[in-house]
Each structure stands twice: as structure tokens, then as C-alpha cells.
Design a protein around this nucleic acid. Structure first.
Length: 565
RNA sequence: UGUCCCAUAGUAUAAAGGUAGUACGACAGAUUUUGAUUCUGUUUGUCGAGGUUCGAAUCCUCGUGGGACAACCA
């Protein structure tokens, strides 16, 4: 029995359940449909859905759409797609705007209780009257309007009698409260704007504080989980629920999740898109869920990451390397292995004269090479790894960096007079180095050991290195997009000056690669490992004529060339 | 010069007043037809000062440091 430790929210839930406070728990994921979901949302999604998965009950997807000027249906669709892709299914798809009628009635109820009033002041005046965190605010003359007058004016606000900003409905609490949010917060404002769902039905809209808790309550959310910046709102949240005498949802706050080498605020991400530092919200360098998907990260790896990081209440910047670990761990099990040469070095096998069917034009052989490396499956009996056929011929490309004319001490690859194995094929020996007039190596002339054929090697030769290769005449080409971290520093937002000064200028490198021909049939949403190069996936920009691959993540590389002394 | 939240290895997160643990990272080694994977080992921590207690990461006080709060945004 492994005892998994609980986070503080799980402890609260277990205590509530044990005390019989709730029969079952209900949570919600409440995004505002005004942008794309990012890693921070992924944390919230995994938390909310994970909790009801663990303890029973269910989770609603609720769009917090109380501000018509920023919200669009396009975002609703992308949010739903992202949540589903992450592997979660909501019980009910709901909208704060579904509750506009109820919310209006709630407001009327508070007016009738003498707990809300219509204020004619301008925003500037109200701000001034509100005071500061260290000075109390002051009450104005509108605060003591009669209930009847408030009822009348609020109805006229709803009827569209006033211009935007002309009047607001405020809760009547305490203008001297230490919590600024309790100094008669605005409940409703006038906005003659088209709403993505209710159209032009309304010209008054509730603010977050007069919508969120009430929506939670209507849905009988037991545990309303949000981030720490809402801590001061909790008092107001509870106040509305108490005065309205409705279901007592409870709010709990955890620390926002930050990720190293990126930024997470919607405003900053928007800047990156608008100012073309990236190619869009789903640019694979972005920390958005759609970018992760395009880049080849898997839902499993993101969920695993959220699990491993956990949640708490202190400020944090989670390590990108942990996310990458999770991605590699998942992809290692799933990815099909392929050989791709990125920076080619020509190799001629001088003694290779394979002739199939006696036809001189077919100067190659097809080798069967394993295409998976699933260590779990390899241990089960009866498991025969799938193979694909790879053409081997007299003229090959290997990676430039796999040859060194003057190798350092522990160099396992090719050098003059040295031997390596070509993955899945033969051992070759470098006999001659051909150079151009400038002294650059242009070609390696090698000989192969025919009896060293992969899988039934009788040569008795042991080599330390194995390198990948492609047959030049059979190679397909593709564009490879190699990504690095978007920022040069761990926490761009905490650095001096504009965060954009810290953008990594090398975050995208585009190169042409030579690939084994099976990759011409590469499928989208299929992870590949280009052996020794990293994990890749087909990009949405890819066409039959021009293949485009994204590097999801590199392989871990512990090779360190010994320092030239 | 206010109120609130927070403080555990490099990072993240556990330890319900009783052995400070786990993961990632880093480092070292073994295995390896990917210098990958896998396996083994090493390394580093309770912000500070008092107090309560047989015993404090945990409770209390005072500091220190970080964060939030003065939108008709969410």
C-alpha cells in the first residue's frame, strides 16, 4: 500500500467528506473566453477535474462571460478543444450569461434589503471616494437613496435609459473597510455592447464579484478553487452568498503556476503574438495548450507534470526541465524510431556492391530495422518489435558531427582509421578523407564489413559507437523546426526592464534534413524519434510536397567532449 | 507605513508536535547496435531571533524577505 500524500485542498475535501458536510463534491473550471488556455489553466484543469475524478462527484465547465467586449465564441471553441484534448470531460457546459436573469433578481433582492444602491458618480469620483489601502473611503450622497428610487433607477439602467458609465449599482457595505473590495463594490455596470451569447438583450452586465460566487452557488459547487490573487475577494464572495441566502459554496486559493523560461500572463502572451515575436497563439514556443499540442507534447505528459509539481500556496517557478522530462518519458514509450541526418557528410562505401536481382540500377538493399524501443513491451514474452524497411546503398549521409579528423580521447564515432556501426546495418571503417581545395572535408571513403550485418554479426569486431545514416539516393528532404526556450532567463517577468528584452533570439532554427524514405508517409499526431536527434512530429504546415517537422524536445545528451587542453 | 497571503536542497512538493522524505536537476558508475532508455550510487535543505514543550519545519511573539489589494477587467 503506497500512501500518497495529500495537498492542502485534498485535505480540506477529505475532512469535509468525513464530517459529512457534503455527500459528494462538485468543482468547476471557469475560464473567461477571451483568449487561449495556457499551462496555468492546465494546472487548474488537472486540479479541478482531478479532484472529482478522485473523490467522486463532477466538474462543470463554466465560461465566465460577464464582459461582452472581450469575449468571443471563437475562444469558447478553442477552450473546449483544449480541455478535451487534455483528457477531461465536463458534466455540464455552462455560462455565467445563463444566469443573467437570476443575477438580476439577486440584485433586486439586495436593493430591497437596503444592501445595494445606484450611484450616479463617474468612475473617477468613485475611485477618489474609495480611499486607499491606508486611508478610509468616504460615503457619497447617492448612498442613502430610498429603496424605491434604487429599484426604479436600476430598472431604468436595465431598460437602457442611460449611457455607458452613467450609473452603476453598488453593494452597500462599508466605505471604511480595511479590505478595499468591501468599500461598496460595483455590482453592475452599463455597457451597450453585443454579447457573444445573449446578443443585445442586456445593456447592464454584472462584474466578476457579483457573478462568480453566485454562479458557483447556483451550480452548488462545493469547492470553488482559484488562484491566490482572489484571496481578498473571498470576503466579498461570502458576503454576497450570506446576504442572498443561497447555497454556501466555498472558495479556496492556491498559488498560480509559473514555468521557467517563459511568461504566463495573458497580456504578455498577447504582446508576443501581436508584436510578431512568435507566429501565433499556437506557435510551438508558446506555453499555451494549443502550442504544446502542435509541438508534439502529449496530454499524458502534461497531466503527469501537473501531478508531479503539485500545488501549494507559495510563489513558485516550476522547472521547464521537469516538463521536458515528462514529455520524454511518455514519448520514449510511444515514438516510432526513424533516421534523419541534419547536417550531412557524404560517405562512400568503396567495397559495397550489392546487386539485387542482378539489376545494376538497384544498387541497394532493404534492411529491416526496429521502429520502437518500448522497454516495457520488450520485457514481455512474445513481443516482436515492429520493423520498417530502410534502403542501404553505396553512398550515404552521416552527421557531420559524427566524424572528427582529430578526435578527443573518448570519441566513440568515426575518425580516420576508426570504425563505427551504422545503426541497423554494418560496421564501417574510415579509410580516406577527401578534402576540397580549401581543406574542408567533403567526403569520407569507407569500407564495410559484410559479415557485420546487424542482427547476425559474425565479424567479431566490437565497436563503441553506433551512428545513424541515410541512403543519399533514397533520402527524402524535410524542413525541421528546432525550438529552444523562448527566453534567455529563468523568470523573465522578475527581471529588470521589459520582459521582451530577454527573448532568446535563437528560439527557432529552421533547417533542411535528409530523411529515410519511410518518413514520406509520416502521419500527423504520431510521435517520431529521430534517432539521436530528438522527438519530432509533423507540423500542420506540412504538405505532400514539403514536409515540415517540429522538434518536440531533444534527447537527453550527456556527451561532453573532453576539453581541448 | 495599513490589511491579507506566503517562506523546507538549485527547482517543485511531503513530513496531522516524534528519524527532514520524494521527484526533477547536477555529479559518478554499470548496461546499451540511439553518448537515448534502463539500473546503481553521491550531493545539497527547514529565512533569523526569542518563547511554549520531554521533544518544534510544524504552535506563539518579534523581525527579515517575497507576493497581493486603491478597473464600471476576470
Amino acid at each position: 500500500m503506497e500512501e500518497k500524500s495529500l495537498n492542502f485542498i485534498e485535505e480540506i475535501i477529505e475532512a469535509d467528506l468525513k464530517a459529512g458536510k457534503y455527500k459528494t463534491i462538485v468543482t468547476r473550471f471557469p475560464p473567461e473566453p477571451n483568449g487561449y488556455l495556457h499551462m496555468g489553466h492546465a494546472t487548474a484543469i488537472c486540479l479541478n477535474f482531478g479532484l472529482t475524478k478522485k473523490y467522486g462527484g463532477y466538474t462543470n465547465l463554466r465560461f465566465d462571460d460577464t464582459n461582452p467586449v472581450t469575449e468571443e465564441t471563437e475562444y469558447v471553441e478553442s477552450i473546449k478543444e483544449d480541455v478535451r484534448w487534455l483528457g477531461f470531460e465536463w458534466k455540464n457546459e455552462l455560462y455565467a450569461s445563463d444566469y443573467f436573469d437570476t443575477l438580476y433578481e439577486f440584485a433586486v433582492k439586495l436593493i430591497n434589503k437596503g444592501l445595494a444602491y445606484v450611484d450616479d458618480s463617474s468612475a473617477e469620483v468613485m475611485a477618489k471616494e474609495k480611499g486607499t489601502p491606508t486611508e478610509p473611503g468616504v460615503e457619497n450622497k447617492f448612498r442613502n437613496r430610498s429603496i424605491a428610487e434604487n429599484l426604479q433607477l436600476f430598472e431604468e439602467m436595465k431598460a437602457g435609459k442611460f449611457l455607458d458609465g452613467g450609473r452603476v449599482l453598488r453593494a452597500k457595505i462599508d466605505m471604511a473597510h480595511v479590505n478595499m473590495l468591501m468599500r461598496d463594490p460595483v455590482m453592475y455596470r452599463i455597457k451597450h455592447a453585443h454579447h457573444h451569447r445573449t446578443g443585445d438583450t442586456w445593456c447592464i452586465y454584472p462584474l466578476y464579484d457579483f457573478a462568480h460566487g453566485q454562479s458557483d452557488s447556483i451550480e452548488e459547487i462545493t469547492h470553488s478553487i482559484c488562484t491566490l490573487e482572489f484571496v481578498p475577494h473571498r470576503e466579498l464572495y461570502d458576503w454576497y452568498i450570506e446576504k442572498l441566502e443561497i447555497f454556501p459554496s466555498k472558495q479556496y486559493e492556491f498559488a498560480r503556476r509559473n514555468l521557467s523560461y517563459t511568461v504566463m500572463s495573458k497580456r504578455k502572451l498577447l504582446q508576443l503574438v501581436n508584436e510578431k515575436h512568435v507566429d501565433g497563439w499556437d506557435d510551438p514556443r508558446m506555453p499555451t495548450i494549443s502550442a504544446f499540442r502542435r509541438r508534439g507534447y502529449t496530454p499524458e505528459s502534461i497531466r503527469d507534470f501537473c501531478d508531479r509539481v503539485g500545488i501549494a500556496k507559495r510563489d513558485n517557478v516550476a522547472d521547464l526541465s521537469l516538463l521536458e522530462f515528462c514529455v520524454r518519458e511518455d514519448l520514449n514509450k510511444k515514438a516510432l524510431r526513424r533516421m534523419v541526418v541534419v547536417e550531412p557528410m557524404r560517405v562512400v562505401i568503396t567495397n559495397y556492391n550489392y546487386v539485387s536481382n542482378g539489376n545494376d540500377d538497384n544498387d541497394f538493399e532493404l534492411l529491416d530495422i526496429e521502429e520502437t524501443a518500448d522497454t516495457d513491451k520488450l520485457q514481455t514474452t512474445n513481443y516482436k518489435p515492429q520493423t520498417r524497411q530502410v534502403p542501404f546503398s553505396k553512398e550515404l549521409y552521416i552527421e557531420q558531427e559524427d566524424f572528427m579528423e582529430n578526435p578527443p580521447k573518448k570519441f566513440f564515432r568515426l575518425f580516420p582509421g576508426g570504425m563505427v556501426r551504422l545503426k541497423g546495418a554494418y560496421i564501417i571503417k574510415c579509410d580516406e578523407v577527401v578534402k576540397d581545395n580549401a581543406g574542408n572535408v567533403t567526403e569520407l571513403r569507407c569500407s564495410y564489413l559484410p559479415e557485420s550485418h546487424s542482427g547476425h554479426d559474425t565479424s567479431g569486431v566490437k565497436v563503441k559507437g553506433t551512428i545513424h545514416w541515410v541512403s543519399i539516393s533514397h533520402a527524402a528532404t524535410a524542413e525541421l523546426r528546432l525550438y529552444e526556450r523562448l527566453f534567455k532567463v529563468e523568470d523573465p517577468q522578475s527581471e529588470e526592464g521589459d520582459f521582451k528584452e530577454y527573448i532568446n533570439p535563437h528560439s527557432l532554427q529552421t533547417i533542411t534534413a535528409y530523411m529515410e524514405p519511410s518518413l514520406k508517409d509520416a502521419q500527423p499526431n504520431t510521435p517520431y524519434q529521430f534517432i539521436r536527434k530528438g522527438y519530432f512530429c509533423l507540423d500542420k504546415d506540412s504538405t505532400k510536397e514539403k514536409l515540415v517537422f517540429n522538434r518536440t524536445v531533444t534527447l537527453k545528451d550527456s556527451f561532453k567532449p573532453t576539453q581541448p587542453t
